[in-house]
Design a protein around this nucleic acid. Structure first.
Ligand SMILES: [Mn+2]
Ligand SMILES: [Mn+2]
Ligand SMILES: [Zn+2]
Ligand SMILES: [Zn+2]
Lengths: 125, 125
DNA sequence: GTATTATTGCAACATAGTCGCAATAGTATT
DNA sequence: AATACTATTGCGACTATGTTGCAATAATAC
């Protein structure tokens, strides 16, 4: 299946780039009204398949997407942590990779790690 | 709000105990037919509130629940990893705690870490 | 320009979990 | 043992998020 370059993809990619954080489908529909719900989902899924973006699962099961800097080079290492603020609900990628060691005979395919708490803006004094 | 001891809670607790792994709502309904869907959800949520069980969010957003050994003593540390096999779909708690360091001004409230891959039974040769 | 087929919009569907409300049943008190 | 209080339950309706089939559209290659 060959990929085609389309306005929809460009727009969504632009939004992902402009945003520092990981964003949800909802955030995208807030900024774009002329692209169909399903299309947005499909494009995001495609970005993940293609290694352009990666998916983070929030505590409530909601999906967030982020372009990952370190993975652009087609060498995927998504074993870094993410952080979601319970107040402002933003999701961000943390730089530091975590070291994952598995029991004998186990194989890793993917990792999803999310810390919930309060960011420096929202943290209570 | 005082908790009451009920047959439903006893049954669900028994299932959680008998199971070594973390289990989903679905797994419970497969073993119990006489407790209402909503009730099961409510009981599981209560267990989490009360620190009896903890919740793991799978890659597909589905919730899993496990009694955590180390947390029974009312000192919660849920910063351990979980593993879900992509084949048999079982979810297990890994013992080793991971070390989480946050940026200045951030506060942690909860952690959900899930590795997806293949367990030693299902791993391809 | 034409053919090929990836992409899109639409609507319907699927799944997981929540919530309001009335009925039921633990628990404490008399 | 009976009573009062209120946590729990079952039921049904609802919400939220994401997926899928299909026909129409449009990107790409020739
Ligand atoms: Mn990331
Ligand atoms: Mn655990
Ligand atoms: Zn915040
Ligand atoms: Zn397995």
């Amino acid at each position: 299946m060959n990929r085609r370059k389309t306005p929809s993809k460009e727009k969504i990619l632009a939004i992902l780039k402009s945003q520092g954080d990981a964003i949800s489908h909802e955030t995208i529909t807030n900024q774009i009204t002329d692209i169909n719900r399903a299309t947005i989902y499909r494009i995001l899924n495609q970005f993940c398949e293609d290694g352009i973006a990666h998916r983070i699962i929030a505590e409530n099961g909601k999906q967030f997407f982020a372009l990952c800097k370190t993975c652009e080079v087609e060498e995927h290492h998504h074993n870094h942590l993410h952080f979601q603020c319970n107040t402002c609900e933003k999701v961000e990628c943390f730089e530091s990779e975590i070291n994952i060691s598995l029991p004998e005979g186990y194989a890793i395919e993917n990792f999803n790690g999310l810390i919930n708490g309060y960011c420096n803006t929202c943290a209570p004094a």
